[in-house]
């Protein structure tokens, strides 16, 4: 993958989408093959890889009893960065959570937690974003915001890998699709000439009919 590119990983439940994301994120070791992220081997140099990536998975990596601002301050400090309060506020504003900065995460919706999770990466500016079902559970406004955010991330040179089994806004962001079946890529194709219906047909052919 090149910088500024987004790949949507499509596949039925158990196809291996989340497993692949976890391998890319250095959380799991591949049984075979080699994973390179930003020029570093994910198995041999996991620490170097982790400096370049951001993961937004099913759990949003947020503490329920901390406020949004405190969560952000904790994760940036744990990353070793000393971030001024103004930058924390700007990151929360970038994900439209500035009005909720002092509220405990326990009161947040799933969409707000996901946005808070993304606020970390507004500050850390990773080169690669790994997203597991990024639009799931979001309302229309949050979906629109996230789509714009991901387009801006790509425009800034960032690479995105999204695991999904829906054909909505993910496809609008994606430059390529990869359909997974049985733990392997059954089809990889550029997104551009394909309509959502085309992708649906390819998905039915390669993912749902896969043995």
């Amino acid at each position: 993958m090149a910088g500024g590119e987004a790949v949507a990983l499509l596949g039925a439940n158990g196809a291996g989408k989340t497993t692949l994301l976890k391998i890319l994120a250095t959380l799991l070791r591949p049984t075979r093959g080699r994973v390179m992220v930003a020029g570093h081997d994910a198995v041999r140099e996991p620490e170097a890889v982790r400096r370049h990536l951001g993961l937004v998975a099913h759990g949003a990596h947020v503490y329920e009893d901390l406020t949004a601002r405190e969560n952000l301050a904790f994760w940036t400090a744990l990353g070793g960065a000393r971030v001024p309060a103004a930058d924390l506020a700007a990151a929360l504003a970038a994900v439209e959570l500035e009005r909720h900065a002092g509220e405990r995460v326990r009161t947040f919706s799933a969409g707000m937690k996901r946005r808070l999770s993304l606020a970390r990466f507004v500050l850390a500016r990773p080169r690669v974003l790994l997203l597991d079902e990024p639009f799931a559970g979001l309302d229309q406004r949050a979906k629109k915001w996230l789509e714009e955010y991901l387009q801006a991330f790509k425009a800034g040179g960032g690479a995105i890998v999204m695991a999904t089994h829906s054909f909505g806004r993910e496809l609008a962001v994606a430059d390529r699709i990869a359909i997974l079946a049985g733990g392997a890529i059954a089809l990889e194709a550029p997104r551009a000439p394909l309509t959502a219906d085309d992708v649906q047909r390819l998905y039915a052919l390669h993912a749902e009919d896969a043995p």
Partner: peptide
Amino acid sequence: AERENDCWEGLLLAPGDKSAI
């Protein structure tokens, strides 16, 4: 607290020497 919202994963992915944690 780390079991909630997969914060354990977050600790793992935080760059730097884990012994600080």
